[in-house]
Design a protein around this nucleic acid. Structure first.
Lengths: 237, 237
DNA sequence: AACTAAAATTGATAATTATCAGTTTCAGAT
DNA sequence: ATCTGAAACTGATAATTATCAATTTTAGTT
C-alpha cells in the first residue's frame, strides 16, 4: 500500500468546533504530523466493544454509529457521530475498555491520534482541556435529555423527537425550503435508537406520513410539518 | 444569623475522589476560604431547572436528587448525587441555564464555590481540569449505560438494575453480611428513575420480595440474593 | 434485466405496562 | 395518643408495545 499524502489538520472539520480550536499554527502542525489518516469503507469498525482503546479518533468525514450489544447479541445504536466529532475521548482518561462498537455508516475519513501524544498536547495547552470539558458537558446534556425522554415519553413522542434530533444534526434545507435529513438509517437502526421493535417503529412512521408530517424518498426523510412534529414530540427542554 | 465557623476542605468527602485531589495544601486552603458552606433541610432546592447557574456545588454530606419536569408537571429523577460529588460542573463552561432541579433528600451540607474562582483555580492547576474530565467521562459512561438499559430492557430488568446500582452507590454491608441500601426512596421516586408507573413498580417490587431476592424494613431495602438479582438484571456491561 | 437476500410492511395476536378506583398502611403534626 | 394526608398497595381494565408469521418492496449483484 502506498503512503498517503500528508494531510494538514488546518482544513479538518474537527477543527472548527473541536477541541483543538485554540491551538497555534505550529502546535496544530505538530498534531498534523502525529496523526494517522485512514479511510474506512461502509460497515468497517473503528473499534469494538470490549477491546482496549489506544487513542483518539477525529472524524473528518462520514457518519459513525456507536452500538452496544445486548446479551442476546442484538445491537442498539447509542449515538451517531459525524464529521468534526471525536471518538475515544473517554478512553484517554480511564483504563476501561471500549464500552461500544464504532461502525462506519458510509465511506469515511478518520484521523487517529495516539493516546500519549494527545495527553502531552493537553498538558502543554490547557485550553485544550477546557475545550474537552466543554464538549463533554454538552454531550452529557444531550445524554440527560435522551434519558428523560425514555423516562417520560411513549414511542410516538420519542420518534418525533428522534426525527427532530436528526434534523438538527444531519438536516439541510433543500431547494424548496423543506428540511431533508442527510443520514440514511434502516428502520431497524431507528427502532433501536428509540428502544422499540422495528414493526412498531414502522407503524408510527406510517402514521407520521399519513398525517403529512414527514415524507420519504428512498431512505431519505423530509420534514413537511415541523410544527406538528414539535408538538407531537412534547419536548421538555 | 450567626456566621458559621470556617470549615477546611481538608476533611471534605469531595476531596478524596474529587476534582481537587491534586491541589497542594496552600491551594486547597485558598479554595477553603473562597467557599460558602451551607446547610439545607430536606426538600429544599440548591437550584431550579431553568434558572441561571452561578457556580459549583460540592456536596459534603447528604443525598441530592436531580429532577426534570415533564410538560405536564411530573418530575422524574435523572440522577442522585451523594456526599463527595459535585453539581453544576456543566454550568461552569456553558451559558445554558440549569437543565434540572437539585433537591435535597435529607438534611445536607453543601459548599458553594463561585464560578469565577473555580475557573481561575482550574487555569492555575491544569491537573484539576484533568480531574474534571475524568469525572465527566465516568458520568458519561454511566449515562450511556442507563440509556442502553432503556433501549434494551423491560421494567423488571430495569428494576433489578436499579437496585444493583443503588447497592453500588449507597450500599453498606450490615452485621449479618447482607447488603443494605442506605437511601430512602419513595415508590414514586423509584418509578420515575426507571420510567414506569408507580403501581407497576410496586408490583415488581412485590415480585422481587416474594422471590426472596430483596427484603424490606420500613423504607430500607436489603438484598438477600444478589446472584439472582444480577441474573434478572441481564447486565450487558 | 433477472436474481437474491435484506429490508420494509401488514395483520393477527400476545405480552407488557398504564390507568383508574378503591383500600390499607404509615409517618409526621397536633 | 390521635389525627390526617400522603404513600403504599390491590384489583380490574384499557392502552401500548412486542412478537410471530406472512408478503411485498428494495437494492445490490451477476
Amino acid at each position: 500500500m502506498k503512503n498517503k499524502p500528508h494531510l494538514s489538520c488546518e482544513n479538518c472539520a474537527s477543527l472548527a468546533e473541536g477541541i483543538f480550536c485554540n491551538l497555534s499554527s505550529p502546535e496544530l502542525d505538530e498534531v498534523s504530523h502525529h496523526k494517522i489518516n485512514n479511510t474506512y469503507k461502509k460497515g468497517q469498525t473503528l473499534f469494538v466493544q470490549g477491546n482496549h482503546p489506544f487513542g483518539l479518533y477525529c472524524i473528518s468525514k462520514g457518519n459513525i454509529k456507536l452500538t452496544k450489544a445486548a446479551p442476546d447479541g442484538k445491537e442498539t445504536i447509542v449515538r451517531i457521530v459525524k464529521g468534526g466529532d471525536f471518538l475515544g475521548l473517554r478512553s484517554l482518561f480511564s483504563d476501561d475498555n471500549h464500552s461500544v462498537t464504532a461502525t462506519v455508516m458510509e465511506d469515511s475519513e478518520v484521523c487517529f491520534i495516539d493516546k500519549k501524544f494527545i495527553l502531552k498536547a493537553i498538558e502543554k495547552n490547557p485550553s485544550t482541556a477546557l475545550n474537552i470539558i466543554n464538549k463533554l458537558t454538552r454531550d452529557m446534556g444531550h445524554a440527560d435529555n435522551k434519558l428523560s425522554s425514555f423516562q417520560q415519553k411513549n414511542v410516538r413522542e420519542r420518534l418525533a423527537e428522534l426525527i427532530l434530533f436528526l434534523k438538527s444534526s444531519h438536516g439541510v434545507k433543500d431547494s424548496s425550503g423543506r428540511w431533508k435529513i442527510e443520514l440514511k438509517l434502516t428502520r431497524d437502526e431507528m427502532a433501536t435508537m428509540i428502544g422499540t421493535a422495528n414493526e412498531t417503529l414502522i407503524r408510527f412512521m406510517s402514521e407520521f406520513k399519513e398525517a403529512g408530517i414527514i415524507e420519504q424518498e428512498g431512505k431519505t426523510i423530509f420534514i413537511s410539518d415541523e410544527k406538528v412534529l414539535i408538538d407531537w414530540a412534547n419536548i421538555n427542554y
